[in-house]
Structures are given as structure tokens and as C-alpha cells.
């Protein structure tokens, strides 16, 4: 077997362990997500760095490092292995105590769920709601978006609700499915009662939904084709051979 194939197989195994990791591990990661960590492995007593909000080093990386190392035929001896792995064991440095607990449930959750599922509905694969995309969209707008984007988002949602109310006494979510679809088509094209700014809002919302969905496990691996370690680049590759788009950007 060529070296590339051996490595590829190793990697696939590692990836699978990574995402099938025990539920306990996943829950831990979920809670840790919302806290803040300093990325640097050293503390600087005299020149304290503020903790930064970063991702949690994945514990399964230790398996991954060990297997790459052994696949490469590196002398992983009893002496070097612990050193090699020590980083994976190092708990993230002190979580910041200042971070508030989970935010209050967002009153717009129902609306964002409705919109996200209309953009990416459930088909033979999960849709936006099943993959947790609406929560990600709200998280994204709260944590990652620029002030400008956040304002655009807030204004756009408010406008959509206002328009829905002129059609019926209730919010958007209470419209009939036909009425909702018709309204969204107008929003998508910036047609009256919507304008170019509203169309831009819908683009922003769509981009956030697509990011949430196609980077979710189901979106990346079921709806699209997920190939973390291609092994090589093939420029002459019939689409039919994979049958769907790659999820990782090319």
C-alpha cells in the first residue's frame, strides 16, 4: 500500500473517532464553547493577556498525532510519546469568570427557526432546524458579526415582522405556508414592500444559515461530500463520481 493510502486510512479513523466521540465529551465541548479561554499555553504574570474566546483543543487530536507519527515511522518511544501528547492533555488555561451564563432565550428564536428551515428545509437529509442551525445563526449574530451586520440583521427581522403584521394580525410564523413563501420571494428579490436594504438583510441571513448548515455534521457529511484528507489533487474528475458538491471549500 502506498504511504499516502496508509495515512489516508489513519486519518479517516481519527476523524471518525473525532466526531463519534462519546456524548459526554461532546457535551463538555458544548458547555466549554461558551466560555472564554486564553489561547496561549503560557501565562504572563507581569503582562496579563486578557483571555480570548477560542475553540477548545480537541482531545481526540492525541490519537491523531500518535497515528500520524507512527504512520510516518517516527520513533515514538515511551519517552517521547508523553511529550508529544502533553499538549493534548493540557487543560485550557483558566476560564474567565467574567463571562455571563448562557444568554436569555432569544425572543426571535421561533422566527429564525422558521426562516432557516425555509431556506434549507429537511429533505432526504436533515434541514436547518435538525442541525441546530437557527441557534448557530443567533449565536453568530451575537458573537461574530460586526456591529453593522448585527444592526442589519435586527432591522431586517423587525421589518419582516412589521410587514407580516400588515397582512395579518399575528407574527410571520402565523401566516399560512403559501403567504410565508410568497413574502419570502419578495424579500429575496427586494420587491415591494421590501427594498434593496431588505434584500441585503436576506443575503446576510442566508449566508449565516448556509455557514451553520454546511459546517454542521449532517450538512457537511450527509448533504454534501466530506473529504478531510483527499490524498492528492485530481483535476480531471467527473462530477458523477462523487455525485454531489464537496463541503470543504476548494
Amino acid at each position: 500500500m502506498p504511504l499516502a493510502t496508509i495515512l489516508y486510512n489513519y486519518w479517516r479513523i481519527c476523524y471518525q473517532t473525532a466526531w463519534q466521540g462519546s456524548p459526554k465529551l461532546r457535551n463538555r465541548a458544548d458547555t466549554l464553547r461558551l466560555r472564554e479561554f486564553s489561547c496561549s499555553s503560557r501565562s504572563t504574570p507581569t503582562l496579563m493577556n486578557e483571555p480570548t474566546d477560542g475553540f477548545v483543543p480537541d482531545l481526540s487530536r492525541r490519537d491523531w498525532i500518535a497515528s500520524v507519527a507512527s504512520a510516518l515511522g517516527l520513533s515514538v518511544t515511551a519517552a517521547t510519546l508523553p511529550m508529544l501528547l502533553s499538549a493534548c492533555n493540557t487543560p485550557p488555561s483558566a476560564p474567565s469568570p467574567a463571562q455571563p451564563d448562557r444568554p436569555q432565550p432569544d425572543p426571535r428564536t421561533a422566527l429564525v427557526e422558521q426562516l432557516a428551515e425555509m431556506i434549507i428545509p429537511q429533505t432526504d437529509t436533515p434541514g436547518a432546524i435538525e442541525t441546530g442551525t437557527p441557534a448557530f445563526v443567533l449565536h453568530f449574530m451575537r458573537i461574530c458579526a460586526t456591529t453593522q451586520e448585527r444592526e442589519k440583521f435586527d432591522r431586517g427581522l423587525a421589518k419582516l415582522e412589521a410587514v407580516a403584521k400588515t397582512q395579518q394580525a399575528g407574527p410571520f410564523t402565523t401566516l399560512t405556508s403559501e403567504a410565508r413563501t410568497a413574502l419570502l420571494h419578495k424579500l429575496d428579490r427586494g420587491q415591494t414592500p421590501f427594498d434593496a436594504a431588505d434584500k441585503a438583510f436576506f443575503s446576510l441571513l442566508k449566508s449565516a444559515v448556509l455557514l451553520g448548515y454546511y459546517t454542521s455534521e449532517a450538512g457537511a457529511t450527509q448533504e454534501l461530500a466530506f473529504l478531510p484528507v483527499p490524498g492528492a489533487y485530481r483535476g480531471n474528475f467527473p462530477f458523477a463520481q462523487v455525485g454531489k458538491a464537496w463541503s470543504l471549500p476548494g
Binding site: 480537541d58 491523531w64 459546517t215
Partner: peptide, 14 residues
């Protein structure tokens, strides 16, 4: 080797 769904902001920085 961290799959995208394991990144809390899916690759974006807060």
C-alpha cells in the same frame, strides 16, 4: 484536523 462542526464559531473569530 478539527472538523468544522467542532469549532464553536465554525471557523469565524468572535
Amino acid at each position: 484536523a478539527v472538523p468544522p462542526w467542532k469549532l464553536p464559531h465554525r471557523g469565524r473569530v468572535d
